[in-house]
């Protein structure tokens, strides 16, 4: 079940997700500025309630051992700590406040018609590439 067609469901989920992103205005540069200037509760409400719902669902999946649609046991990938989460986290935070977008909203910002964000996205891809290229030389 790894055919392209069976993967189309992710396109549908992504589309719904993109619509929510736009309608909640989380892709708005203005909303991100408000968040980092503590001028609005909106973004804290969005992220906070998303985490609450996510936590509750994961807890339910674990407690009742809920299987996937194909009957598999749900796999959780543990995240290992390294210094990258600090250095990289700070760098991403700086970028987030400039562009008003994390990687997901970049795609949605292009979708709503701000075509120049394609340049920001290309630059983000370049950033990922440069990280990959010089990964061994960076502190982790």
């Amino acid at each position: 079940m790894n055919t392209w067609f069976s993967q189309l469901k992710y396109l549908v989920i992504g589309t719904l997700f993109g619509i929510i992103f736009v309608k909640a205005e989380v892709i708005s540069w203005f909303r991100i500025q408000e968040m980092f200037r503590l001028q609005s509760f909106h973004m804290y409400g969005v992220i906070g309630s998303a985490v609450m719902v996510g936590m509750l669902s994961v807890w339910l999946i674990k407690k009742y051992n809920i299987k996937t649609l194909e009957g598999e046991t749900v796999v959780f990938q543990p995240k290992k700590f390294n210094k990258g989460q600090i250095y990289g986290g700070l760098m991403f935070g700086l970028g987030w406040a400039i562009t008003g977008a994390c990687p997901g909203p970049l795609f949605a910002q292009i979708g709503v018609g701000t075509t120049v964000v394609a340049v920001t996205l290309l630059s983000a891809i370049a950033g990922t590439w440069v990280y990959g290229r010089f990964r061994d030389q960076l502190p982790h």
Binding site: G54, G88, L90, L94, I98, G127
Partner: peptide
């Protein structure tokens, strides 16, 4: 803002091993 900001987003998220979705939402969940 566009080129510099984008670079920081792409470099930073990969260095950190995730972004708002992978760390803040999935990771905290």
């Amino acid at each position: 803002m566009m080129v510099g900001g984008g670079f920081l987003v792409g470099f930073g998220t990969r260095y950190a091993g995730g972004c708002t979705s992978g760390h803040a939402i999935m990771g905290l969940s």
